[in-house]
Computed example of a mutant assay.
Amino acid sequence: MGKTADLTVVQKTIIDTLHKEGKTHTFIAKEAGCSQSAASKHVYRKLSGRKRSTTNRENCSLERLVKQNRFKNLGELHKEWTEAGVKTSRATTHRRVKEFGYSCRISLVKPLLNHRRRQRRLTWAKEKKKWTVAQWSKVHFSDESKFCISFGNQGPRVWRKGGEAHSPSCLKSSVKFPQSVMIWVAMSSAAQDLAPAHTAKRTKSWLNDNGVGVFDWPANSPDMKPIENLWGIVKRKMRNKIPKNADELKATVKETWASIPPQQCHRLITSMPRQIEAVIKANQYSNLLR
């Protein structure tokens, strides 16, 4: 059944009907009783010889809707597009958005930054632009984060193209609030450590007493720290965990943290040059929008 020619009239009818309803090719193939390849070939053969249901002008109007607000969901985009007079299906709306190069992704959260902090962040990034992976491997990163008994969803989704993760129009702002169960961690290129947050001050005192230099870091810029990625990994691993109390929660965090291999820490450290470059590009992108 791998060839379109092998499909029966009934199978072709089923494929055409389900495709118009916006069903996935996997679902269509299963319902039609053929391979996914055969179903896809039949769909694309018909599309290639068929006039597109939307004009270039209409497509441009849809792309403008996406750019105006990257956080609109597909239903909102389809509603606004059809209200503008475009007669098309929700499935076609989705296809057009994908044709523009956009994918629906979970948005990164940007720190709340004023102009002075943005400039300090950019200056810092430029100062570290030529740092090598070997230099970053000598840095120990530390941070603290809150863990709650109930973990919410992953955050709003955003339409963005490749390389736009740090673009201002694709970010959500965040403000720090009082935290509940706090955990303090540290990581380097080869190892990591975890402890209750109340020991953080003691750790800072030890560093000062033993002459260990403290890295100058721009204010409200946790997104540039590789340790933030570790927090994300831990919280994703804990997504299906349901601790009953704070003690169980702490134990779960420690167990999950211990499961992260040292190689993961090294890979995150090696990403620092790319993070620095992303900050510089994001600032250039922001200037173009002014």
Rank of each mutant, 00 (worst) to 15 (best):
L7P: 09
T8G: 03
V10N: 15
T17V: 15
H19Q: 09
E21C: 10
K23L: 08
T26G: 14
I28C: 01
A29R: 01
A29P: 04
S35W: 05
A39S: 04
S40T: 12
K46T: 07
R52N: 06
S61T: 12
L62Q: 13
N73G: 13
G75H: 10
E76S: 03
E80M: 15
V86E: 00
S89F: 01
T92R: 09
E99Q: 04
S103D: 14
I106K: 05
L108K: 08
K110I: 12
L112P: 12
L113H: 13
K126Q: 15
K129W: 12
W131C: 07
W131N: 08
H140P: 14
S142R: 05
D143R: 04
E144I: 07
S145Y: 05
C148F: 10
C148T: 04
I149C: 03
I149K: 02
Q154W: 10
R160K: 00
K161D: 00
G163P: 03
E164K: 01
P168D: 09
K172Q: 07
S174N: 09
F177K: 15
V181F: 13
I183K: 03
V185I: 08
A186Y: 07
M187C: 02
S188G: 06
A191N: 14
P196W: 02
P196N: 01
H198P: 11
T203K: 10
N208V: 12
N208S: 13
N208P: 06
N210F: 03
G213H: 08
V214M: 12
F215M: 02
D216H: 14
A219W: 07
D223V: 13
E228F: 00
G232N: 06
V234W: 01
K235G: 07
K241S: 09
P243L: 03
K244C: 15
N245G: 01
A258H: 09
I269D: 01
T270D: 11
I280L: 11
A282E: 11
Q284G: 08
N287L: 08
N287A: 12
